[in-house]
Structures are given as C-alpha cells and as structure tokens.
Simulated assay, not measured.
Amino acid sequence: MKRTELDGIAIFLAVAEHQGFRSAARSLGLTASAVSQQISSLEKRIGAPLFSRTTRSVGLTEAGQRLLQHAKPAADMFLAGLESARELSEQPGGNLRINTTRPSMPLLINRLLPGFHEQYPNIRLEIRAEDEFIDIVEGGFDAGIRLGHVVEMDMVSVWLTPPDEYLVVCAPSLLARYGKPQKIEDLQKLPAVLISRHNQTVHSWTLTQNGQPIKVKVDGPLIINDPLSLIQAGLRGVGMIYTVRSLVAHYLAQGQLETVLESNARSVPGLSIYYPSRHQSLPKLKAFVNYATAHLRNGISADDFLAEQPR
C-alpha cells in the first residue's frame, strides 16, 4: 500500500461525520480551504466526486458512501490498534521475545519461572535458544542474553549474574590414565574435546599466567559445536574440556569432573541482558530486567544450570 493512497482519508471521514467542510476543519484544527483541497485531491485520485455540495449542505455521493462503508470500519480498527499498542507501553503485558544460548536456558527456567509469570501474568515469554551470536533486532527479538557485556551502538547492557571464569576440567578417569597436568604446557599431553564456532574449530584455550592471558594449543579426537554435548563428552572421559565454571559447578561438586590448573582459570563477566536503547521504556522489558536482576545477581547455585534438577 502506498502512503499517498491513505492521504486525505482522515479528512474525508471528518467531513462525512460533520456533514460540512467548515465544521470538519474546526474539529481537525485546519482551515476550510485546506480541507477542501485535500478532498479535491482525493476525488481526483479516485476519479469520482465524493460529496454533493450545495450552499446549505454537504452529502455523500454513491462513491462517497462506498468509500465510507469500507474506510470507517478500517479507521476504527486502526484506532483500536493504536490504543492496544499504547496500553502495552503503559503496563506490563504482551509478548516478550528473548534470545539466549542453550546452556543458559535451564538457568532462566529454574530461577525465573514460574515466579515471573505469577507476578506478571499478562506477559507471554518466548525464549529462543541459539548458540551463535545473532542480530536480535533483525531477528525480531526484544532482548538477548549472553556471557559478557554486549555493548553495541544503540544497545543497553545490564549484567545479570556474578562474574564467572573459563577453566579446564575433565573426568577423574582421564587423569588416572594420563596424570594431572602441573603446568600449562602439560595440557598438550592430554586429549581435548574441541568446540566449533561459526564453522571454525577452536584449537587454542586462553588461560592466565602471572595475571596475563596466555594461549595454549590443544588437540583431540572429537570436535563438537554444542556446549552441552561438550560437557557430556567431558563427563565420559573423552577428553579435557574448556568451559565456564557455572555450567559444570554441579559436576565438580559431585566429583564427576575435576579442575585442571585451576589457578590459571580466566575470569570473565557473567551473563548480561542487552537490548536496543529505544526498547528500555517498554514496561514488559523493564519488568523482566528488574525481576531477572533481583533473582540472579545475588548468586547462582551449582544446580541452576541443570536441565533436570536433582531430587
């Protein structure tokens, strides 16, 4: 639909309602000549007169009646839509689309639901899990949740969880076979499970030594593009894995995994929620951000990232 096709419709409806050009002009805050010009322009585009004019009255022609029959309900629906949209900007309600990673999904479910829905029953959450970083605006999402502070142009970032760290862990059975590394160079003596991102395999892990980042090249028998499957492979003793502590905290506490060179772990910011700055005034988004920060910033437990909670 071209914008010019809608020009003059509001003025046409006002003239039809008030049955006069002057009274319609007063209601619209326009001059009578401006209203007359808009109607004349609309009639030219349609190719037929819309009003029959006399010195005493203004009436609809057959073409005008047909236009009114269709335009009036459409205008009423349009105004109802504006009112509905305005309500969404004034109170928490409507659909809220969040994009996050698969490993973060259990945390959101375990810590935020169903409490969030009890407090905000009019907000419908749609949480989409994608491990690749995407453009949330292009994807039609209201916000995204990722590890670290994502600050791009016109984006607002709010941290949700405490700082975390990347570290190397593996199954006790693997250490029994190869021995436990004592220095960073020893990592090259053990098999590793590699992660693939953006169709590229990551062959190096970043650790710290004397407060400085240091990269170590690793290799192994398995390449995986799924962070959760990476952890499962580590639990089965396939190789060492390089992951975020919070994701494996439960398995470390249970003794199913052990840390390797823990003093060389690399600190990273926790999870953050980010969204376009123009969205920050939306009540539904403000409600979610406030609720999430209140329930996540004070710390998370070892079981929060488990898809199945221990009984």
Rank of each mutant, 00 (worst) to 15 (best):
Asp131Leu: 10
Gln200Cys: 04
Arg45Pro: 06
Ser52Tyr: 04
Gly115Cys: 15
Arg245Met: 04
Val15Pro: 03
Ser173Gly: 07
Glu258Lys: 04
Pro191Arg: 06
Val193Phe: 10
Gly179Ser: 07
Asn290Lys: 15
Phe21Ser: 03
Leu82Thr: 09
Gln37Ala: 14
Ser246His: 09
Gly29Gln: 01
Pro227Tyr: 08
Pro121Lys: 08
Glu165Trp: 01
Phe51Val: 14
Lys286Trp: 00
Pro121Cys: 14
Leu68Ile: 03
Leu306Tyr: 14
Ser272Asn: 03
Leu190His: 05
Ala192Phe: 12
Leu28Phe: 10
Gln309Ile: 05
His203Gly: 04
Ile134Trp: 05
Pro227Met: 06
Ala233Pro: 03
Leu125Gln: 08
Leu306Gln: 09
Glu308Ile: 14
Met240Glu: 04
Leu79Met: 11
Leu187Asn: 07
Arg311Gly: 05
Lys284Phe: 14
Ser157Asp: 13
Pro73Tyr: 08
Val15Leu: 13
Arg53Thr: 06
Val216Gly: 05
Tyr291Phe: 09
Gln38Trp: 04
Pro181Arg: 03
Ile223Leu: 12
Val218Trp: 07
Leu68Gly: 07
Glu308Leu: 15
Ser104His: 04
Gln254Glu: 12
Glu126Trp: 15
Ala302Phe: 06
Arg86Met: 13
Leu13Ile: 14
Gln38Glu: 13
Val260Thr: 00
Ala253Trp: 02
Gln232Phe: 13
Gln209Asn: 11
Val244Ser: 02
His70Gly: 10
Thr201Val: 11
Val193Leu: 12
Val260Arg: 00
Phe21His: 01
Gln212Ser: 11
Asp76Ile: 14
Ser57Cys: 07
Leu271Asn: 01
Phe78His: 02
Val168Phe: 03
Leu167His: 00
Asp131Glu: 07
Lys2Glu: 07
Ala34Tyr: 15
Ala75Asn: 05
Arg266Met: 09
Arg97Phe: 11
Ser41Tyr: 10
Asn99Glu: 07
Ser84Gln: 06
Gly59Pro: 04
Val202Tyr: 07
Trp205Lys: 01
Asp186Glu: 06
Leu79Trp: 15
Leu6Val: 09
Gln91Leu: 13
Lys44Ser: 13
Tyr166Ala: 02
Leu247Val: 14
Pro227Ser: 13
Thr161Asp: 03
Glu118Leu: 10
Ser89Tyr: 11
Glu130Asp: 11
Asp226Pro: 08
His250Trp: 12
Leu107Gly: 08
Tyr291Leu: 12
Leu82Lys: 03
Asn264Ala: 11
Glu130His: 06
Gly93His: 05
Leu306His: 10
Gln209Arg: 15
Val260Pro: 00
Pro121Val: 08
Leu67Thr: 00
Phe133Tyr: 12
Ser196Ile: 01
Asn225Gln: 03
Arg245Ile: 15
Thr201Leu: 05
Ser33Leu: 12
Arg128Thr: 05
Glu132Ser: 12
Lys183Arg: 14
Asn298Pro: 08
Ala71Arg: 09
Ile224Ser: 11
Arg177Pro: 03
Asp186Val: 09
Ala249Tyr: 07
Asn225Glu: 02
Glu258Asn: 02
Gln209Gly: 09
Arg124Lys: 08
Ser33Gln: 11
